[in-house]
């Protein structure tokens, strides 16, 4: 694969951390997401919230879901609430079929505000 197919951006404001996901979350990229999320969890967001913004996600396969479940396990252990913001329809369907929708706090009306545009750290 010539270019990484998952783009991750970390933003934070007011203690809430937001990981923006863009591209493909699959067998080749899910480890990267898990590692980045781990780093965010280690920092311990002060507001106790970790947002995963999936608006730009094009695809998520079973290993992608596995990574999300791992992130859920780690945030739960730390008392951090895990939000899944702007999940595309295919993701809603996947979460619903697999019976895992309830694990992720529903997108609040403020989802977008909790992910400010101010970029603190970017990876490619």
């Amino acid at each position: 694969m010539s270019a990484p197919s998952l783009f991750l951006t970390v933003e934070s404001e007011g203690g809430a951390v937001c990981l923006r996901l863009a591209g493909v979350l699959d067998y080749d990229t899910s480890d990267e997401l898990a590692a980045r999320a781990d780093a965010c969890i280690e920092q311990g967001p002060r507001a106790g919230e970790l947002h995963l913004d999936c608006e730009k996600l094009r695809l998520c396969d079973s290993t992608g879901l596995s990574a999300l479940l791992m992130i859920h396990r780690r945030t739960t252990a730390r008392g951090i609430t895990l939000f899944l913001d702007n999940p595309p329809p295919f993701m809603e369907r996947m979460l619903s079929v697999t019976g895992t929708r309830h694990l992720f706090a529903p997108e609040s009306g403020k989802a977008r505000q909790s992910c400010p545009d101010e970029v603190r750290e970017t990876t490619d």
Binding site: S66, L69, R73, T98, G99, T100, L103
Partner: peptide, 14 residues
């Protein structure tokens, strides 16, 4: 029928 995936969560229902 509907239920939770197997092997990753402590509590499942179906």
């Amino acid at each position: 029928t509907h239920g939770t995936l197997i092997g990753a969560l402590p509590d499942i229902e179906s």
